[in-house]
Design a binder for these strands. Structure first.
Lengths: 351, 351
DNA sequence: TTGTAGGCGTTATCAT
DNA sequence: ATGATAACGCCTACAA
């Protein structure tokens, strides 16, 4: 590991001069000296120590991204958005999974602070009753005092800028779409208990139902994962079937889809199913959903984190647009019984 | 940002003493002093600077993971495996996407070295003819000289320990399974040109075909992504249909599945489809595949990177086992025509 | 234009 | 048991 000292010795110049040419300083250096330094640096394949540099500048070109679970395509898409922009600017991405634990988040925040990270992005939603929220806020404040920018990508009740999309409206929109297909008896499969995102989406569902004078109380416990949807499907299939089901997210929607079909229920023939987010798997199975600007969330957050303060960068909160994406797991309502066979035939033909 | 100097002043002790109690040194410190230091540290919520520490210790508790694309569930699963174990030990994960560019990999390696990372894990496969391979190897050597452990999770022609699974055998096994179903005219959809992983899998396919006295030459260009599979499906559907198709990975397999069905081809009634990897989406759509030990790859690699050298840790290369996972996109071969309707009926019933 | 030297926060060596 | 103090590698006034 060559250091500036090595270079300066090799080139026969002072460390200061070596430093100046090797870090794009604006301080003038004669062409001759410059060349000698450059040559010496090339010879030993010099690479500056980020840690030494960080120690003096009080800042590391690191952006931390705290997600729930990187295997969840929701977070993966966000992480990629972040990396796309910070990587291009020479920053590195520190990725941490917090598994929805505020305690772990605080720990990661602490570590990021210890590294003098340039910024940190919270990708997960928060809980309505979070006993550790204040503690998190304190940790966040300290982080900011240490010079890092912090931004959240979901509702958190935290004093920090956010970039989000409207979960409530997204849920409202899919629900409204399903209603427009003629369905009346529509169920909602909930997300994890107490999470803002779950609540907002449920809220959107209920609002759309009420706006159409329909009963918004048909709800099932769920989660954010495929398995939750699959299990719920079996429970649903065992009772009186709804005409359509809106799931809190795509994974649950897909779980419902598969569970229902495995239980012998035709989707969308007998029951329509829709999700929210439009992660890749949703495309794969043709799930009707609403496209959330996941990648853009990451890009935008990264932009905020790296923006020069004088940049006139948009401050406060940013809300990105979503878009309804109808696919083939939802269908127009038909009269029961009679339509049943016809639907089956059409479904077959469509393949 | 409180520093040791602050603490020492507050507690009325030397910086050395403060340091000793605050970093679990074995150096003896009297109970009284210890308490004073602890109190002072608590008052100001002291957190040691990782960068200062790194400067003197020449090492950062960071492990870098260089993947192709974090949105690809293949890599996401590996990244999670890594994070699960390094996180538990107090290390942080630096994630970088290299998009199959050796040049980007070299850049990331350089950065990781500048950070004095403890280890770096290469998750992507290499190319058969990589003009930059030597350059990468040099960079890798330097990284290792700097004290970092390096491990690769795929064939790379690099002088460094690897932990992998047997791509060739995996492809052989699915192919063999498909053959056992009675299929004869079986196609293979290739991965990206020149990638070791692509080649090994194709090799396994061909070997299995030849072992069964079947023609191994029915191949289609593909890639590693859903879209490639989908497009290929349309081309395949336009010609004489094979009885079965083995895809280089799950995403392509799913693309084939959807493309075929959209083109009116019944899967598995008319054509069977299988993939490799068993990423989550494969489970979602019921794709027949072989389960690759992705998560374990990450876990094992992380273990190697964090292992004490004296640990008697397994050196050299490690090959983890895979497992055939039949699902519902493959079916036994029937006599054509006559069986057609019957198959359709059964397919419906099975749901 | 070049060089000297102080300091960033820790750890570790060497006295005391 | 405690405390100075010299690194670690780099940047940056300040001096020359």
């Amino acid at each position: 590991m060559a250091s500036l000292a090595d270079i300066s010795a090799r080139a026969g110049v002072s460390i200061a001069t070596a430093s100046r040419v090797l870090n794009g300083s604006s301080h003038p250096v004669s062409a001759a000296m410059r060349q000698r330094v450059l040559d010496a640096a090339a010879e030993v394949d010099y690479a500056p120590s980020f840690v030494a540099r960080a120690l003096v500048k009080g800042r590391t070109p690191i952006v931390g991204v705290i997600v729930g679970d990187i295997v969840d395509p929701y977070f993966a898409e966000i992480a990629r958005g972040v990396e796309d922009v910070v990587g291009r600017k020479g920053y590195l991405t520190m990725l941490s999974s917090a598994h929805r634990s505020t305690e772990l988040e605080i720990g990661h925040l602490r570590a990021l602070r210890a590294y003098q990270a340039t910024g940190v992005i919270f990708a997960s939603s928060g809980f309505l009753h979070d006993t550790r929220r204040e503690e998190l806020q304190r940790s966040l404040d300290e982080t900011r005092e240490a010079g890092a920018k912090v931004v959240a990508l979901a509702h958190r009740e935290l004093d920090c800028p956010t970039v989000t999309f409207d979960n409530r409206a997204a849920a409202y929109d899919v629900t409204d779409y399903v209603i427009s297909l003629g369905h009346r008896r529509i169920a909602f499969v909930d997300g994890p208990e107490g999470l803002y995102t779950s609540l907002e989406r449920r809220d959107g569902f209920e609002a759309a139902m009420r706006a159409a004078d329909l009963d918004p109380t048909l709800r099932f416990e769920g989660g954010f994962e495929y398995e939750a949807g699959y299990e719920t499907a079996r429970r649903i299939a065992a009772g009186r079937l709804p005409e359509a089901i809106v799931a809190v997210n795509d994974d649950v929607g897909i779980g419902l889809l598969m569970g229902l079909r495995d239980a012998g229920v035709d989707v969308p023939g007998t029951v329509s199913v829709a999700g929210i987010d439009d992660t890749r798997p949703a495309r794969y199975v043709g799930l009707t959903t609403v496209s959330a600007p996941l990648h853009e969330l990451g890009i935008t957050a990264a932009g905020l984190v790296l923006a020069d303060d004088e940049d006139g960068a948009p401050t406060g909160d940013i809300v990105l647009p979503h878009r309804l994406t109808p696919r083939s797991t939802t269908a127009r309502r038909r009269a029961r019984a009679a339509g049943q066979r016809r639907r089956a035939a059409r479904a077959r033909a469509r393949r």
